[in-house]
């Protein structure tokens, strides 16, 4: 997927630039894009480091685990197919909690582990309903702290970099709820 999109972007861009006389702009873009990325990364770096440090405290002190226990009943309700004695529920909850705190990178390994356990439960190469629900939960991106966006906003000199937190929260909450509802509808339709 990415191969095609990236290739098409560059091919169309260069060819179109050539025929419309914008080739000089394309040329300077090729020369300067490395510098643009470097300055972006350098500015994203400090706030990422800070946030990962704070979140490590939350993880080591057991705070994230405590939140997972708190969310357990909700997860049970969202995943009715998973047997009670299975440890998958706690995996799902911790992956959700990690996502919630903007720790996408830390939650990916847990997410993959969860998928493996879900596959063990279903034992086929067809996606189970629980897998799809889990996927929806991950892709609606429910986040309390959108770290990257806040740091990008700081980098552009925003007067209120964290001002987008509440609308982000509301929007991702509503898309999560919506996603789970249509997931339920499809689940019934496909049985």
């Amino acid at each position: 997927m990415m191969n095609k999109i990236w290739g098409v972007f560059i091919i169309i861009g260069v060819v179109y630039g050539f025929f419309t006389g914008n080739i000089n702009v394309v040329n300077s873009e090729i020369l300067s894009c490395g510098e643009t990325v470097l300055s972006m990364v350098l500015k994203l770096f400090p706030i990422m480091a800070l946030w990962l440090g704070i979140m490590k405290i939350a993880s080591v002190s057991g705070l994230l685990k405590k939140m997972s226990i708190f969310l357990y009943p909700i997860t049970r309700f969202i995943f009715p197919d998973i047997p009670k004695d299975s440890d998958v529920i706690s995996l799902i909850t911790s992956s959700f909690v990690f996502n919630m705190f903007g720790l996408g990178n830390a939650s990916t390994p847990i997410g993959l582990k969860t998928m493996k356990s879900l596959k063990n439960l279903s034992g086929s190469d067809v996606a189970s309903s629980s897998m799809i629900t889990f996927l929806v939960l991950n892709t609606t991106g429910f986040t309390i702290i959108p770290t990257t966006i806040i740091s990008l906003r700081m980098m552009h000199g925003s007067i209120n970099p964290s001002g987008v937190i509440i609308p982000c929260l509301l929007a991702s909450l509503s898309s999560t709820v919506f996603g789970l509802i249509i997931d339920r509808l499809y689940r019934k339709k496909y049985v």
Binding site: K119, M131, T176, G179
Partner: peptide
């Protein structure tokens, strides 16, 4: 990534629900 890692071939309605939610 998630379906690929565990070798799921048929993803059923996953993409539809994911994109609708997006």
């Amino acid at each position: 990534l998630y379906f690929g890692s565990v070798g799921i071939k048929k993803t059923r309605y996953a993409l539809k629900v994911g994109l609708l939610a997006d």
